[in-house]
Amino acid sequence: MSEARLRRVNKEIADCQNDKASGILIALVDDSPFHLVGTFPGPENSPYEGGNFDVDIVVPDGYPFQPIKMKFITKVYHPNVSSQSGAICLDILKDQWTPILTLKSTLMSLRSLLCSPEPNDPQDAEVAKHYLSDRADFERTARYWTEIYANGSESARPPNADDDAAALARRKKGVKEDPALVAGLKLEHVEQFVNMGFERNAVIDVLKRLNYRGANVRNVTDDRVVNELLGI
């Protein structure tokens, strides 16, 4: 059983390395072939285009009869991916798994998930709400995330490297992330309330919570925002 698992994983890794066309890379984290990092380019004509996305892959003991465990290392702004932990909501990683699926085909499914989000089956509720209320605005934020988090050559970076290292790498490249933009908010909206004398981070928190984005802005009155900021 474990012999079959090793043979299969090794062959899958070799297949991926021989196939340059798909753009999918698989690298070992340490000596074990059962803990890997997969990397794929963001799909074209999507807000993720131009980014490189790293995925943490753990091959369970029962592989290929049990599903592979995958989560995003690169931060992704997507309704079916947790913006905090990178956890992925995808049926084939759960009950729809079948042994015929491979590391490569699963990574390709992840890639097509980026093209076609399922906002009615969300992993990250806030992001899904953003997606449904204003698609263009959502895409703007997703593109911003792609730029600041997925644009570097972070591929095959060990998944445990802490966020400080990633931030440091970004600073070196001269990209500075703005928490307002990361949260999908417009700078002018944030400044409007900061000018009233509120602290910037508090403004961002409240606007994020009220989904003060895109078309939804007109559903949230200024009074409501101020009341929230005052804790009323």
Binding site: P79, N120, P122, A125
Partner: peptide, 14 residues
């Protein structure tokens, strides 16, 4: 029920 999620009145995070 899951069918109610992902709509605009989703509020189980609040």
């Amino acid at each position: 029920p899951w069918s109610e999620h992902g709509n605009s009145w989703y509020n189980c995070n609040r």
